[in-house]
């Protein structure tokens, strides 16, 4: 199971199985989507599978999650999302009412993001062979500006910006499983980010170096990927990372670090330090980025590490998790 948690185990699985078998230059960079030349224009193509439990949770459901996830993968590659596909794997006996709800929320999410769901497929499997409903999507977007975005483009002096409070999707899901015995009104942050990205890139087309949506593995995992791919160090400032108190509370209860908790409507942007304030202003003037904040800076040394300056002035290593976190203090 650790292989799906978004950390190093996932990365090892990808390297060992998929990269090996599918080896080609478009896949190799392991960005959120592949950039393709189609005639004279460039397009980004991405795909995703959604297996969330429960299917309905405060702030969203598997339907809008699927649409937003795919839209965001296209957006952070610098593309304008246009068309999506949707595939459904349904467990025999799955309530038709639930399916209607999911599909309706997909339609609403697509409308909000300005994309069309243009093709699809449905399969039904035997009872017990699936957990209610799985959704797969693919998305195509067009790149209509000179794109320089890359996971390996971060440079010393750049600022690291997060578009809003972190960890809310992951915490909302944990709460929605109904096991924690606590009441907290945390909503999933699931939202389309293409509008926010468009605003950002319209004004700062080359000053934005890297964009990533902080999904599985959270902000910590994204920043580790940036630090490794760009050969830089990322230094975060603990006090400037936006986290809502409910999220902090649930994370403390469960002994997890919000930096590793998934978001579905937050992006991490690495921006030329000179334009960082401007980037934050642009994000804040968009509803999806109202609480954007600079959370850290890119440095030179040591390459590949993510560090966190703590409130007491210490510096903690925020490493890439190998699997499920187990206590490492003796």
């Amino acid at each position: 199971l650790a292989h799906g948690s978004g950390g190093k185990a996932t990365r090892n699985l990808i390297d060992a199985i998929f990269l090996e078998a599918f080896r080609n230059p478009l896949l190799a960079p392991l960005e959120d989507g592949a950039t393709l030349a189609l005639g004279s224009s460039r397009a980004v193509f991405t795909t995703d599978a959604f297996v969330v439990s429960p299917l309905f949770f405060p702030g969203g459901d598997i339907g809008d999650l699927a649409v937003n996830g795919t839209v965001n993968d296209l957006a952070v590659c610098g593309a304008r999302p246009l068309y999506l596909s949707a595939g459904f794997i349904l467990e025999e006996g799955f309530p038709i009412g639930d399916l209607r709800r999911i599909v309706a929320s997909m339609a609403a999410a697509a409308e909000m993001a300005g994309v069309s769901i243009v093709t699809g497929d449905t399969k039904v499997v035997q009872r017990g062979k699936a957990d209610g409903c799985y959704v797969t999507t693919a998305g195509v977007g067009v790149v209509d500006r000179p794109a320089t975005l890359s996971i390996s483009a971060a440079q010393p002096g750049d600022a690291v910006i997060v578009s809003g409070p972190i960890g809310e999707h992951g915490v909302a899901i944990m709460l929605a499983r109904g096991e924690l015995g606590i009441e907290a009104d945390t909503l999933s942050d699931t939202a389309p980010l293409n509008g926010l990205v468009a605003d950002l890139l319209d004004t700062l087309p080359t000053q934005v170096r890297t964009l990533r949506d902080a999904t599985r593995g959270g902000v910590a995992t994204v920043l580790n990927e940036v630090a490794t791919a760009s050969g830089v160090t990322v230094v975060m400032d603990e006090e400037s990372v936006p986290v809502r108190p409910e999220v902090t509370g649930v994370c403390e209860l469960l002994g997890i670090d919000p930096l590793y908790v998934a978001c579905e409507g937050r992006l991490v942007a690495v921006v030329d330090g000179e334009h960082a304030e401007r980037a934050v202003d642009i994000m804040r003037s968009h509803p999806a980025g109202a609480e954007a904040a600079i959370i850290g800076w890119v440095g030179e040394d040591p390459p590949g590490l993510v560090l966190l300056r703590t409130a007491f002035g210490g510096t903690r290593i925020v490493d890439m998790l190998v699997g499920d976190p187990l206590p490492r203090i003796c």
Binding site: G178, E179, L180, G181, I182, L253, L254, G255, L326, P327
Partner: peptide
């Protein structure tokens, strides 16, 4: 103030390692 939440973890999970 925190006991019920932890007790619930022990009953319903995730109870932890």
């Amino acid at each position: 103030d925190r006991w019920p939440a932890v007790a619930a973890l022990l009953v319903n999970g995730p109870a932890g390692p």
